[in-house]
């Protein structure tokens, strides 16, 4: 089969290559379309559907009632509380993680790798159990309480309060902040800091004018990675919040499992997804990469 190359052959060869790629992707493509994209679409569709009097869903009389319901005081409070707690969580994570990442980036490579592994372990390991650990610690008769009683501060009563929820969220998502921040600080050109100091800037000025702006992509990436799961958190409010002060995640679950108001549950889910997509797009626009 020896022939002179022609534009036609070249084009056919390119097509063959592209088809090979497509076929490789196809199984995952089909799977995700069927078992991810389709479910996602159905949530959006259901958010515009009508709830029947029996708690079922009628796929007719399309309306935006479920969205107007988001403006009602109960739902608004929940939205507000969720956003507030998610923002507080993000800020605390940032405050803890920034100096940590900076410290990490200034260690020598071997130390740094070990330190990183010990951040990666909580990053990937069982989230439920790690929340449960706090439940044990914060319990009435738990170790924290006994310590505070011992030093005369009285019994610790933060379990089942928003404070406990924030504590659990920070505990759960702090690694999400550390890893992108560390990556940003580590990538930084340290000679710029030298240059700034050389040009007479103080340590604080250098940090404000050079270090922080350079690490900003990491700050944004980390904040988004903490904010999104905090906003949609379900396990932590259940375990540490006692499900009393409801957050978005719990509210959605209630609408689906107990209140049987699927359109409203779907509408809240859709809002959550839109926020998430917006934040993710911001993340990629700022040059973020996946962990």
């Amino acid at each position: 089969m020896t022939a002179v190359a022609t534009p036609k052959f070249e084009a056919a060869n390119e097509r063959k290559k592209s088809r090979r790629g497509f076929l490789l992707a196809l199984p995952a493509y089909v799977y995700l379309s069927l078992f991810f994209a389709l479910p996602l679409l159905s949530v959006v569709v259901y958010s515009f559907a009508k709830r029947t009097s029996t708690g079922g869903v009628a796929l007719e009389d399309w309306n935006i009632d479920s969205y107007t319901k988001l403006g009602e005081p109960i739902v608004r409070d929940i939205l507000l509380r969720s956003f507030t707690l998610a923002i507080i969580t993000t800020v605390i994570c940032l405050v803890l993680a920034y100096p940590f990442s900076y410290f990490l980036a200034t260690r020598k490579a071997s130390t740094r790798n070990i330190m990183l592994v010990f951040v990666m372990i909580p990053f990937w390991s069982n989230f439920l159990v790690r929340n449960y650990a706090w439940r044990v610690l914060l319990g009435n008769d738990g170790p924290v309480s006994r310590v505070t009683e011992g030093v005369g501060l009285g019994e610790t009563t933060i379990l089942f309060t928003p404070t406990a929820i924030v504590l659990g969220l920070v505990y759960g998502f702090l690694p999400f902040m550390i890893l992108p921040l560390y990556a940003a600080v580590e990538r930084m050109d340290w000679s710029l800091i030298e240059a700034s100091r050389d040009l007479g800037a103080t340590g604080m000025q250098t940090f404000r004018k050079v270090t922080f702006p350079l690490s900003l992509p990491g700050v944004i990436a980390g904040s988004i990675l903490v904010f999104i799961p905090s906003l949609g958190a379900y396990v932590t409010p259940q375990i540490l919040g006692g499900g009393k002060k409801t957050m978005l995640g719990s509210y959605i679950v209630t609408q689906f499992l107990t209140a049987r108001n699927w359109p409203v549950g779907a509408a809240v889910s859709t809002v959550l997804m839109v926020v998430m997509l917006g934040a993710t797009m911001l993340y990629f626009r700022k040059g973020g990469r996946t962990l």
């Binding site: 089969m1 020896t2 002179v4 190359a5 052959f9 070249e10």
Partner: peptide, 18 residues
């Protein structure tokens, strides 16, 4: 890489599409 067009021979044998 394959040429877009033209002939490419190695020891007289056309190999442009191999």
């Amino acid at each position: 890489e394959f040429p877009t067009e033209g002939s490419l021979k190695i020891f007289g044998e056309e190999v442009g599409t191999l």
